[in-house]
């Protein structure tokens, strides 16, 4: 009988399979439920804005800019479920925690890029529509990009934010599973930090504004910021993997 030894090849193959399953699940829930709702809501708000001739001072401010919020918190929530719910489920299907962690990493990468593309398309479409009225969207919080045409920067911002939030969700889900509701909630003070840190370092959106206005944070060059954000997200994923590696599945 051949010895039953785990090999890196097997780990990566099954990790990829796991990533595929998780991504398909996310695509199903995100693509079929979440994104259509987001689009309908924002088109609705936009139409209302046009119909009422703008909101006073906020006239012609970007509507899609605010989609950044749900576009981060939904993946975060889903990643919590993945951490707390799918891990036990997949272990019972014979997955190792290592394979599952690889799968989660793959899912985070794919879903972040997909959300970034949707975000970029949204901004572009908004820009075109505003253009029909001879206007261009005004942004109320800081971004990496100045203009929706800065596609690489738009993609980078959305992808970095989404991935950081998903990594954070994975961490939160794991701590909730391990420590239960009360402790898990108390630990949010710490477990939410990676997502906030990335927003801070990236100096975008609300926390970016806080960073700039409140702390006088000056965003370093992108060549520093982007690798730093990726490092925070990767470290969060790796740290969560280290945390779940000896995790017991509850009876």
């Amino acid at each position: 009988m051949t010895a039953l030894v785990d090999t890196p090849g097997r780990t990566w193959r099954r990790g990829l399979l796991c990533g595929r399953q998780l991504t398909v699940m996310m695509a199903y829930v995100g693509g079929l439920w979440f994104l259509p709702i987001v689009v309908v809501v924002f088109v609705g708000i936009g139409a209302l804005q046009v119909a009422t001739g703008g909101w006073g001072d906020l006239s012609w401010s970007s509507v899609w800019e605010h989609s950044l919020q749900p576009m981060r918190y939904f993946p975060l929530a889903m990643a919590i479920i993945v951490g707390a719910g799918m891990l036990p489920n997949y272990v019972s299907h014979g997955m190792t925690r290592r394979e599952f962690s690889i799968g989660v990493g793959i899912m985070i990468a794919v879903v972040s890029v997909a959300f970034a593309v949707v975000g970029a398309i949204g901004l572009g479409v908004e820009d075109v529509i505003y253009g029909w009225f001879g206007e261009s969207p005004e942004y109320t919080v800081p971004h990496l990009y100045a203009d929706p045409g800065d596609v690489p920067l738009v993609l980078a911002q959305y992808a970095l934010l989404t991935s950081a939030h998903m990594a954070t969700g994975w961490l939160i889900g794991a701590t909730y599973y391990r420590f239960g509701g009360y402790l898990g909630t108390a630990m949010l003070l710490v477990t939410l930090l990676p997502a906030i840190a990335v927003e801070f370092v990236l100096s975008v959106s609300y926390f970016g504004q806080v960073a700039q206005d409140g702390f006088g944070w000056d965003r370093p060059p992108l060549a520093v910021v982007i690798p730093a954000c990726l490092a925070i997200t990767a470290a969060t994923c790796y740290g969560t993997y280290r945390f779940v590696r000896r995790l017991a599945i509850k009876p």
Binding site: R10, V91, T96
Partner: peptide, 11 residues
Amino acid sequence: ENSAVTEKVCL
């Protein structure tokens, strides 16, 4: 953490 075994064990 050895899926050579766990893929063959179903609880």
